[in-house]
């Protein structure tokens, strides 16, 4: 069996991006914690900025470009997700939301997930709990208890950012080991559990 894949979704717009920076730190913390479990993982980066136009086109036509289709498949097939967004107007960025709007209900079910957000000041830190968690709860992802919010000042002070990152990475690694995602059956697989035969639909199977 190949290594589990952690997909790191970052919605930062700048270059360099503090959102991507936080995502990378969460990734490293997770890998370190996994190593302590005697496990390792592959990491796939899904950066949303280059997909912005593709995401908008998908909203209008339901047609995914190859690039967007590839990114969606990475996320849907992941063994774990790290999702980090900048905070705009008291919520995740529109780009972040629009990307997850492409994902259908149930497709993230049971995937161990770690959330992160970045913003100018710590006053925005509730966004993780008021906006991000409800969306991932709806998508049925398994979200770890810690969510790291990194304000601009955190990068230049001993505010405990590194400790919070390590804790969240530990939680994600623990969850990956203890409660790995369950694969949903494919409704097109006629041998699989999700396929509904006509007899079942008629209610006499």
């Amino acid at each position: 069996m190949s290594s589990p894949r952690i997909v790191v979704v970052s919605a930062g717009l700048g270059e360099p991006s503090s959102t991507k920076l936080l995502a990378d730190r969460l990734r490293d913390a997770t890998l370190t914690a996994l190593t302590a479990h005697g496990q390792h993982a592959e990491v796939v980066d899904v950066t949303l900025r280059p997909l912005a136009q593709d995401i908008a086109s998908h909203m209008l036509t339901h047609n995914a470009t190859d690039a967007l289709d590839g990114a969606m498949k990475e996320v849907i097939d992941a063994e774990a997700i790290i999702a980090v967004t900048p905070v705009f107007n008291m919520s995740y960025s529109g780009l972040f939301k629009s990307f997850f709007d492409v994902i259908e209900e149930g497709q993230l079910a049971s995937i161990p997930t770690a959330l992160g957000a970045t913003g100018g000041t710590a006053r925005h830190s509730m966004v993780m709990d008021t906006a991000m968690r409800p969306m991932f709860a709806y998508l049925k992802a398994q979200v770890v208890p810690t969510g790291v919010f990194a304000a601009a000042e955190d990068w230049g002070s001993a505010s405990g950012l590194e400790r919070r990152i390590a804790r969240e990475g530990q939680e994600l690694a623990d969850l990956m080991v203890a409660m790995p995602r369950r694969r949903e059956a494919d409704p097109f697989d006629i041998e699989g559990d999700a396929f509904v035969s006509f007899e079942q639909m008629l209610g006499h199977a």
Binding site: A56, S57, M59, L60, T61, N63, T65
Partner: peptide, 16 residues
């Protein structure tokens, strides 16, 4: 109405 303001004619031709 169904796909305007989205992908280019060329992109949509390629994909559909």
């Amino acid at each position: 109405p169904v796909y305007g303001h989205g992908p280019s004619l060329e992109e949509f031709t390629e994909a559909t």
